[in-house]
Computed example of a mutant assay.
Amino acid sequence: MKNTIYIIFSLILFVSCKDTKKVEKATVNEWETLFNGEDLTGWDTYLGMPYKEGQDIWNQKKLPDYQPFGLNNDPLNVFSVVEVDGKPALRLSGEVYGGISTTKEYENYHLQLEFKWGTLKFAPRLDAVRDSGLLYHGTDEQGTEAGFWLRSQEMQVQEGDTGDYWGIAGAQVDIRTEMRVDTLYQYNPQGELRHFGDGSELGRNVKKFPDNEKPTGEWNTLDLYTYQTKSAHVVNGKVTMILENSRITIDSITKPLTKGKIQLQTEGAEVYYRNIKIKLIDKLPEF
């Protein structure tokens, strides 16, 4: 009897282990849809305070009457699901600065999405190029950066600058670059490995290379690969930047930054996102 029980228990344990292995294997290289095309399930919204004429938008938090819309409070319908070109899309109107972020955190993944610029613009960017952004490894409280965004790394989404890097609220990386004549640094895979981000004397912005964004009004495909402390920005199939040693400094303490939420910025311009999906990876591709 004891032998029979032991055999049955062993079989159950064997089957459980096999099932577990199947589940673990299935999570790598299988796409998960982040936008269901119907509503904002799986996402949180966050909005700062509406812009007032003459206001220093980057210092809203210092205003005596500072009162952001905050978390999941969107009375102006800045975030919505619409149909564009016959397919569902996530619309970010741009009317108020802020972002829409995944409720879950992700690490070691390939993210893919499409974006297209709308026509509307809002102050204080009425005369500026259209701007948004793909933030990744988002952490800490909503609105930490300037009252609008999470601490994070940024893959820039901006007319003419899509694929650039920005370090947000303490985030830093190392990128191989060369100096351009306008004193900005531009990605060069054979360039010197330099430090960028908050606290760097070189600043927190690096220009992409090459420029592979399609004309305004056309859909663009963005791919973001991130594995451990390394990531790659890819625009319409071309690598525009490889980033290394992702880290963050908070209160003089620096630590690796390898995971977090994904956030899309609303920043003064109407933009549409669609076909947002993600899959886990166990290594970076050979670019």
Rank of each mutant, 00 (worst) to 15 (best):
V157G: 00
T103H: 13
Q158G: 11
G118Y: 07
T139Y: 06
N72W: 15
I57E: 03
E95K: 15
M155W: 01
Q67K: 07
S93Q: 04
P50N: 09
S132K: 15
P75S: 10
V78H: 03
Y46H: 09
Q142M: 15
G99V: 11
T119P: 06
P88I: 00
F115L: 04
E83T: 10
G133N: 02
P50W: 04
D56F: 00
Y106P: 06
R125G: 04
T162A: 10
M49Y: 14
L92N: 05
S152P: 05
K87Y: 07
N59Q: 06
T45K: 01
L126V: 00
E105C: 01
D44N: 15
T139H: 10
Q153I: 02
G99H: 11
F115D: 03
N72T: 12
D56P: 01
S152K: 09
D131Q: 03
Q55H: 03
E159Y: 09
K52D: 01
L120M: 13
L126H: 10
V78Y: 02
L90T: 07
Q112W: 00
D85E: 02
V81R: 01
I57Q: 08
I100A: 13
V129G: 15
P50Y: 11
I57R: 05
E159N: 11
Q60F: 05
Y136W: 13
Y136Q: 14
V157F: 12
G160N: 07
T41R: 01
N73V: 02
D85V: 13
G54D: 09
T139I: 12
T144S: 12
G94C: 04
T144Q: 15
H110N: 08
A123V: 10
V81Q: 06
L150K: 05
Q153M: 14
L92I: 14
A128K: 15
G98S: 09
G118M: 02
F79K: 08
K52T: 12
L126N: 13
E95F: 10
G133W: 06
D44Y: 12
Q112N: 13
S152D: 08
Y106L: 03
F148W: 15
G37L: 00
L63K: 00
T103S: 07
T139G: 15
Y109K: 14
N36S: 14
T139C: 14
G37A: 01
I57K: 04
S101A: 14
W43P: 09
E114C: 14
G98C: 03
H137F: 10
W117H: 04
G147D: 02
Y46W: 12
E105Q: 01
K62C: 08
E95D: 03
N108F: 15
K116I: 12
K87M: 05
K116Q: 06
V129E: 13
W58R: 06
A89R: 00
N77W: 00
L63W: 05
V82H: 06
K61Q: 10
K121C: 10
R125Q: 09
F69P: 05
L150W: 08
D39Q: 07
L92G: 09
K61S: 12
R151C: 11
L71R: 15
T119V: 05
N73F: 00
S93R: 03
L135A: 08
R91P: 04
L63S: 10
